[in-house]
């Protein structure tokens, strides 16, 4: 049975699209037929992060309006055979989305895909609502920073009250915490909320920690999802996230400060 996963956060700029790109790529690299949908109608960006911006011809609104078939609008990813992208419309606004249309698209995608990843726009308005309404599971992307944590809490409240699963009284949406832009050095200095602090406040299971890293900007510059970046912590961290999501028991990495040269020489870790 196909699973619908929403990547959400409330706050903007915390790494939803970065995560959507790497998470869906990671699922596909493991052989799962995966599609990632950009719900940010009017401000599409997933295409840029995935590096397929010049191949966008049709978008989700064209499909909803019945102008083209779903097959015509899906773009095959350049890095993974099993991954497809459904871009958002850049010229329309978010009111062009509607629940019936989204439901129809998801039903059709469920016939041929294992995972449907929904990249939510920031905020709590209709675009974000459409992205999370049909979700079976949610990745709540949070930065170790007060406004991001508060907005994540708000999103969790909405998932618990207004998602389809909540409204229909089904089993609740399965929630996962993903802490991004984490800097263990600043945490140790008492300048940044720790993963434990965030977990204690939001009270949902931790799926992973993505360290603050220069390679995220390099990845977006080149239109390659960060998970494909060689020798980068971020790529390793996202691979771990996907592994845990698939049920593997992997130790949390990137939560402790990296040992310096001298410390490593002296045998510390």
């Amino acid at each position: 049975m196909a699973k619908v996963i929403v990547i959400t956060s409330g706050k903007g700029g915390v790494g939803k699209t970065t995560t959507s790109a790497s998470f869906s790529s990671g699922l596909a690299l493991r052989g799962n037929k995966t599609v990632v949908i950009d719900f940010d109608v009017g401000l599409r960006n997933l295409d840029l992060i995935m590096g397929c911006e010049r191949r966008v011809v049709y978008d989700i609104i064209n499909v909803i309006n019945g102008e083209v078939s779903l097959k015509q609008a899906l773009i095959k990813d350049k890095n993974c055979d099993n991954l497809f992208i459904l871009p958002a419309s850049q010229t329309r606004d978010k009111d062009a989305l509607n629940l019936e249309g989204v439901a129809r698209i998801l039903e059709e995608l469920k016939q041929s895909f294992d995972f449907i990843v929904c990249d939510s726009p920031a905020g709590i308005e209709s675009g974000a609502f459409m992205a999370m309404y049909f979700a079976d599971e949610a990745l709540v992307v949070t930065n170790p920073e007060v406004s991001s944590v508060r907005d994540s809490d708000r999103i969790l409240g909405i998932l618990a009250a207004k998602s389809k699963r909540a409204v229909e009284g089904l089993e609740p949406v399965k929630e996962h915490l993903l802490v991004t832009r984490y800097d263990p050095k600043r945490v140790n200095a008492g300048e940044m909320l720790s993963v434990t602090d965030i977990q204690e406040i939001l009270r949902i299971p931790l799926l992973g920690v993505i360290p603050e890293s220069e390679s995220v900007l390099k990845a977006s510059n080149s239109g390659t999802p960060a998970i494909h970046m060689d020798k980068s912590d971020v790529a390793d961290a996202y691979r771990d996230v996907v592994g845990r999501f698939m049920g593997e028991d992997l130790p949390m990495r990137f939560v402790a400060e990296k040992a310096g040269f001298l410390k490593r020489l002296l045998g510390g870790r």
């Binding site: 944590v149 300048e191 909320l193």
Partner: peptide
């Protein structure tokens, strides 16, 4: 960070 946690 402690202040942040308490405020949240």
């Amino acid at each position: 960070a402690v202040v942040a946690k308490e405020r949240l």
